[in-house]
């Protein structure tokens, strides 16, 4: 569904991504693993058009979307949930959701506010609360829900478990599995191996802006040396 090839990206003169390539098959959850500063967020941003790739292709269902603007990529069917959540703090929960609203995609059940409150019951209880007065976990749910309002077919999720209590991480993992069951493909950036294990089918390891390893999630868990080399602190 998503195929990234030879992707490079720069911040100013700093070369951040170098020849990054991987695939996200339809209906699967692929996790991008790597230490702090490895380039996970930059990869997601480059796919989303929020960092302009300096080389390479981003094929979404066969069309190269590299170099397009973020809003066009969103309209093509990608949804992006940023690491910092970026909730509109002045807007209420309901208004935040309405910013994300886009017409439904074919083949997937369209998201409505009610369905999202079903997915994240905590949100349903605070529809009129301004985003600025929500806890980190609630903001994370709202950020995901807001993106889902755009009815994406592929979801880019940047560290949804960051800073959440273990119980909330479990609930978040449940939600992600539910999304997968709905037929959504998901590209997840993570550092939390527990969370990655709970949701991902495949794993891609990135270090210093290069892909170092790619394979099944189960495979990775059995591969002590790869884990030691790229992921342990």
């Amino acid at each position: 569904m998503l195929k990234v090839q030879g992707l490079s990206a720069h911040y100013g003169r700093a070369h951040i991504l170098d020849d990054v390539g991987f695939e996200v098959p339809a209906g699967q959850v692929v996790v991008l693993l790597g230490r702090n500063g490895a380039g996970k967020s930059t990869t997601l941003k480059a796919v989303m058009g929020m960092v302009r790739p300096s080389a390479g292709q981003v094929l979404f269902e066969g069309t190269d979307i590299a170099g397009r603007e973020a809003y066009q990529i969103a309209r093509a069917g990608l949804g992006y949930v940023p690491e910092e959540r970026r909730i509109f703090s002045e807007l209420t929960v309901r208004e935040n959701l309405s910013v994300g609203r886009r017409p439904p995609a074919q083949g997937l059940r369209p998201w409505t506010e009610e369905r999202l409150y079903g997915l994240f019951p905590a949100l349903g209880a605070m529809q009129d609360r301004p985003g600025g007065r929500m806890s980190g976990g609630e903001q994370q749910m709202l950020s995901i829900a807001r993106t889902l309002m755009g009815n994406p077919r592929l979801l880019l999720l940047d560290e949804p478990s960051e800073g959440l209590a273990p119980v909330v991480v479990q609930r978040m993992a449940q939600a992600v599995r539910q999304l997968k069951a709905e037929g959504l493909a998901i590209l997840l950036a993570e550092q939390n191996l527990y969370f990655a294990h709970a949701v991902a089918d495949r794993a891609v390891i990135i270090e210093q802006g290069r892909i170092r390893w790619e394979g099944g999630m189960v495979e990775l868990l059995n591969d002590e040396s790869t884990y030691q080399q790229y992921l342990s602190l």
């Binding site: 989303m48 603007e69 973020a70 809003y71 940023p82 970026r86 910013v99």
Partner: peptide, 8 residues
């Protein structure tokens, strides 16, 4: 920028 990423 976030508004743009949401397809606007």
């Amino acid at each position: 920028e976030m508004v743009g990423a949401l397809g606007v």
